[in-house]
Design a protein around this nucleic acid. Structure first.
Lengths: 351, 351
DNA sequence: TTGAAAGCGGTACCAG
DNA sequence: CTGGTACCGCTTTCAA
């Protein structure tokens, strides 16, 4: 591998000059420049970014730490981050934690040791009692002035940059829509509610019920695992109730799809007998039949926004401390929602 | 940021000693070791991997360059690579090219400049006339002895490490299965056939027809774009034929799903009127109804195998030149395939 | 058992 | 317009 020294020798100049022609950082006479370039070609020179970064204290890389690449929500975020990073001259390195907090911490350590300029993290935040350790590590990084921004939830970390979407508003929109269609009994199918996102959605649900003068029935608020399986199980439970709801609001699309499967199996037609609304609007929801109505978060924009924020912070482009950016959601109405009613008939015939 | 020098000063030792206690690379007396460790704590020291890599010429990172993270096939590969890399003490950095050849090349340059130890690349290889430039770059890297392995196709690069699956065999299995169910007319729904993977599948199709004494009808071999849309359009075409086939073999799952949609819309029941087989066995195929029969490639294993190969190459653990590893496929039989027959009746009633 | 010092491959200040 | 050279933070040989 050729180095500056080799080039300098071949071209008969100093390494300083080599550096300057490569980086165009000061004027070099056309003749010397030509000699240097010729030597570079001749030696098939390839810069060593490690050495450069060591000297400049910049890697021009940012990392995105996500729980799962398989999840289409996160991959959309990733695309947003990547595009914005590229636009601003940064490489993105993707770190997939597989929902493991240990990995999360390990990646944060790696990022710090490799002197990556900063990172974006979208914590899983769904497992009960999780993130304690990684929150602590984040706090430490923050204390040390290491740049990062969080997507989705801010944990209990004070004064941090966060990009999130209005989950309360999203749930509110969905429930209002169902209420306006005439639904009176709407189930909330979710997971552990202690955490940020889940809690926001629950609050939105409750607020919408209140504003539409609907009674909140605790037996309609269900917890399960956040995958397809959880939606499936909870929906079977729901369909066995004496007085089942006419609509299901699922806290994410995978659960909604599970709900759909359960209805299919039970011969309950959607949306004839049961309306279903999902959350996240992953591509999958338009591939199942009926296509699911779902609350869309602007994942791509959340990604690009957070990259923008991070890079501004890295480059110290005058940001006040701890920005919180809340993006709006949008209800994507498709085929899984309709007026209620038929279900009552159906139920009677079941009994 | 504290450095060895600081630690050495505080602990009253040399930087050499600091290095050796950190890396456990030579014996250090318990007392000095204790002093050093104490200083490390006191200074909240965090190693600088850049400096280390510069000195050791090792980054312990490998990269995976893929066309799309959104595609579940690639994300499965990525998981395999990641797990194996981790097992062997390497970090994985994921590079998403968004199917753009320019990005592919840019990432390869990046990988080289950052002195990443090696990379795995899964070329898109689907666009016609693509990969010329990036193939050239790969050849150059190979010439320079930069370690990499390819997944899926080897381009026209001689003597390179490749991990692939037996696409010919996979198609053969699928078509044989259909033939044994009694299908006589089976459509091949694919894309541009000039390239490795597509061609292999076509060959497998042809071989199976031959061995089952079925006539190859050129009008049943169709080309379209490789997304859902392509499968949809080609299937509409198929359903309008005077004598349509009773089964469709799609070159990938997205096309198969498009085919399914087209059948749904046309009131053609699957598998009653039409059998459909996909390829890749992405998770999505078990989420649509009917669940699709599909040829599974061992993506995860392909990922881990290629990581293993790459790392062995990096560490020069005696590998002969240019390994080619071909993994077996497996036909996953689900609900979209059945005996033919009903379609004839149906067709008659259409005419 | 430990230290001095010469790299690794660049950057950038200070001179000239 | 160009060069000399001290660093960036860590590794590693040689010597003591």
């Amino acid at each position: 591998m050729a180095t500056y020294k080799d080039i300098a020798r071949i071209a008969g100049v100093s390494t300083a000059t080599v550096s300057h022609v490569i980086n165009k950082t000061r004027f070099v006479s056309p003749e010397t420049k030509a000699k240097v370039l010729k030597a570079i070609k001749a030696l098939n020179y390839h810069p060593n970014a490690l050495a450069k970064s060591l000297a400049t204290r910049k890697t021009h890389m940012i990392a995105l730490i996500i729980p799962s690449i398989t999840n289409q929500f996160f991959s959309a975020v990733a695309r947003g981050v990547q595009d914005e990073a590229k636009r601003r001259g940064y490489y993105l390195i993707l770190c997939n934690t597989d929902e493991e907090e240990v990995n999360e911490i390990e990646y944060m350590k790696m990022v710090r040791e490799k002197r990556i300029d900063g990172f974006i993290i979208t914590p899983p935040g769904t497992k009960e009692n999780a993130n304690k350790m990684s929150n602590e590590y984040l706090v430490e990084l923050q204390k040390d002035g290491f740049p990062f921004v969080m997507i989705g939830r801010r944990g209990n970390i004070p004064n941090v940059d966060v990009v999130t979407s209005d989950s309360r508003g999203g749930a509110y929109q969905a429930i209002s829509y169902l209420a306006e269609l005439g639904h009176r009994r709407i189930a909330f199918v979710g997971g552990p509610f202690s955490k940020g996102v889940g809690l926001g959605r629950l609050r939105g649900y409750q607020q919408a019920l209140r504003e539409h003068k609907l009674e909140e029935d605790p037996s309609l608020i269900l917890e399960g695992n956040l995958e397809e399986e959880g939606g499936y199980q909870l929906t079977r439970q729901i369909l066995n109730m004496k007085l089942p709801p006419t609509a299901i609001f699922a806290i994410n699309d995978m659960m909604a799809i599970g709900a759909l499967t359960a209805c299919h199996e039970a011969g309950v037609s959607v949306p004839g007998d049961m309306s279903i609304v999902g959350y996240d609007d992953i591509p999958l929801v338009s591939m199942v039949r009926p296509r699911l109505t779902s609350v869309a978060q602007p994942e791509y924009e959340m990604g690009s926004k957070s990259a923008e924020l991070l890079i501004k912070r890295i480059e110290k482009k005058g940001l006040k401390e701890g920005q919180i950016i809340v993006m709006n959601t949008k209800l994507m109405i498709r085929e899984s929602t309709g007026r209620p009613g038929i279900i009552y008939k159906n139920l009677l015939s079941h009994q």
